[in-house]
Amino acid sequence: MPLPSDPATRPRRIPRRAGIGLRAPHYRRLLDELPDVGWLEVHSENYFGDGGQPLHYLERARAHYPLSLHGVGLSLGSAQPLDRGHLARLAALLRRFEPDLVSEHLSWGAVPGRHLNDLLPLPYTEEALAVTAAHVAEVQDALGRPILVENISSYLRFRHSTIGEAEFIAALAAQTGCGILLDVNNIHVSAANHGFDAAAYVEAIPVAAVREIHLAGFDRIGELLVDTHGTRVAPPVWALYRLALTRFGAVPTLIEWDTDLPELDVLLAEAATAERFMEAHRALAA
């Protein structure tokens, strides 16, 4: 068993810098070279095992970098009750690794007896808002802290939606006290897929609630943009990011990459680009 990284000397607060999503193929190089990157984010469920290599490497990385835990499986928007076992494992992971940020998605993935293990879109209705808000409150009670909720990319909308997505997530934050993880790439993808104005979406998000921004790459498949996390951040997404910096300030920003994972250097270069935009924003704001 690796010794836990010393809680007294662990870096805690996520700085107003760029971070990267840490994936298994990059463990060794990251630990060998300890590059100057502001912070790390991992998928919570990748560390739900009882032991072995993944937890060992996360312990070692945690000794050097502030951490964010990003969940993909809690299914906050499902009509059925939350999975208490899943929540308990997440709580145990928080006690062990003391992340500065904890996030989940504004989506659903489970129905009774079956999990789809995907981030599926909600109908934006008062009913869905009540269900999701109750689940967010339950998670925050169980974890003893606020979480961040992230807007997803979507490829369809439901006809009976009565609320805009940005207004829905703003209401969720207002009702539960949760923060918002604003995925700028997801806004771009969904705006293109549904024909809404990405800038107006950004303007509808409450400034004080945004604690983290995500950036990633998308692909075009037929008529639709698909959030593949498999390419560099696209120019229109960088442009939208600059707009977001103007509205929300230089909040911690993550480079996410999950498919066709490149060398670590590519992620670090993307993070450096994000930091240049943060610097430029600070210079303008000063």
Partner: peptide
């Protein structure tokens, strides 16, 4: 399909993205 907004892109084409993603994710897992 009747629950999905129909616009310049057909609901079936939109739903197909999710059908593909879910099948792909389970196969790869």
């Amino acid at each position: 399909l009747p629950f999905v907004v129909a616009d310049r892109i057909a609901p079936a084409e939109r739903l197909a993205v999710y059908r593909h993603n879910v099948r792909h994710n389970f196969r790869e897992a």
